[in-house]
């Protein structure tokens, strides 16, 4: 599904990623763990094209997208739910959802998304800025899924969210992974959430992957301490 080879990128003259390489299959969930400032968000932003690749190659579904624009990557099937959700504050929930429908050829995504996330049913006319943090996260996820992505990149989806909504998101993503064959790259600090969803976990330090572990190994205190120092 996605193959990343020797990826380098950064902000201006400051390099952040130093030769990231990994591959991912359809329907796989890869967790990325690392301390703050190690390059997790930079990696996601480079994959979606918000930050330019300075060296290396990104291939998605057999197509080289290394220098494709963010909108071209989105139309190719890469969805992104960033930190802070980035919903459109003045648009209603319904209008936010409709914004995600670009790849549907006129077919409405709203009924399907309301089926996945019934909590949005009563909020359709409410402006985005009138939602709680958890509701905004669900809306951001639903809007991303409305575009029928093959791969979604989630940047700390549990940040500041109440546990019941975290469980709802984990349950839904697990379900979509199986039913739609959805690939997920999950950047997360919540080890419990990663253990629930990920098939494997990559540890990032100073802009490079230093280890790959299984989610079960996150139960092992020694492994966690060795890689994350927590």
């Amino acid at each position: 599904m996605i193959e990343v080879k020797n990826l380098h990128s950064g902000y201006g003259r400051i390099p952040i990623l130093h030769g990231i390489s990994f591959t991912m299959k359809q329907g796989e969930v890869v967790g990325i763990l690392g301390h703050n400032g190690m390059g997790k968000t930079t990696l996601l932003r480079t994959l979606v094209g918000q930050i330019k690749t300075t060296q290396g190659r990104i291939e998605f579904d057999g197509r080289d997208v290394t220098f494709a624009s963010p909108s071209e990557r989105a139309r190719a099937g890469i969805g992104y739910v960033p930190q802070g959700r980035d919903i459109f504050p003045l648009l209603s929930v319904m209008e936010n959802l409709k914004m995600g429908e670009i790849m549907r050829g006129g077919e409405s995504a709203v009924p399907e998304m309301l089926g996945h996330f019934p909590v949005l049913k009563d909020l359709l006319e409410r402006p985005g800025r009138g939602l709680s943090g958890g509701q905004q996260q669900i809306l951001a996820l639903a809007r991303c899924l409305a575009g029928r992505p093959k791969l979604i990149l989630l940047d700390e989806p549990t940040e500041g969210i109440q546990p019941s909504i975290v469980d709802l998101i984990a349950e839904k993503l697990g379900e979509l992974k199986v039913t739609l064959g959805l690939g997920i790259i999950l950047v997360e600090q919540d080890i419990r959430f990663i253990r629930q969803l990920a098939d494997r976990v990559l540890i990032i330090q100073k802009g490079a992957f230093v280890a790959e572990i299984s989610p079960d190994q996150l139960y092992d205190r020694e492994v966690v301490d060795a890689h994350l120092g927590i």
Binding site: V48, Q50, S69, P70, S71, A74, R75, Y80, P82, D86, I87, F88, P89, L90, L91, M99, G100, I102, M103, R143, C144, G147
Partner: peptide
């Protein structure tokens, strides 16, 4: 409202 977000949804 948010040009960057719109691009990430696939709009040029």
């Amino acid at each position: 409202e948010n040009e960057r977000r719109a691009e990430l949804l696939g709009y040029d």
